[in-house]
Amino acid sequence: MKEGITVDLVSKDKLDELSSEERINYIIDEVRKGKILVLERGLTSSERVKLIQQTMEKIDHDTFIGIEIEGYPEEKRSFIHRIFGMVGKPRITVIGPAHLLKTIRRDDRVIETVIVPGRRDA
């Protein structure tokens, strides 16, 4: 058992060099290890849906009960972006295992989360 909880600040560069699928796998793998990730650039909504799907597949009800994810909404799409059906840029996001990370409060400027070890005595 390691002591303390690891929080990784993951740069946009690191995320950009991964394919969409690799990005999702990377996140799930790290979070399942009990890590909390702060992503400089978040996921698109279609990536988030895939992340939820994969999370559901990997929940084992004992060591992994799912994820907590918080972030700011995608930037408003410009007219040009909408014409080409492009999605807005995802913004800073925090993701962690649901048994550790809990959102306390959020507004459009600050997201307050708390890390509670042993929240779930499994």
């Binding site: 009800h61 009960i65 799912g66 994820i67 907590e68 649901a98």
Partner: peptide
């Protein structure tokens, strides 16, 4: 984004076996 069978046990008094099954089906 999460499903915790313990929530069914603690908050709704569902027995553990049933709660686990419910959680599995929920995912």
């Amino acid at each position: 984004t999460k499903v915790d069978y313990m929530e069914f046990v603690r908050n709704y008094g569902i027995d553990e076996e049933e709660a686990r099954r419910r959680a599995k089906e929920a995912t």
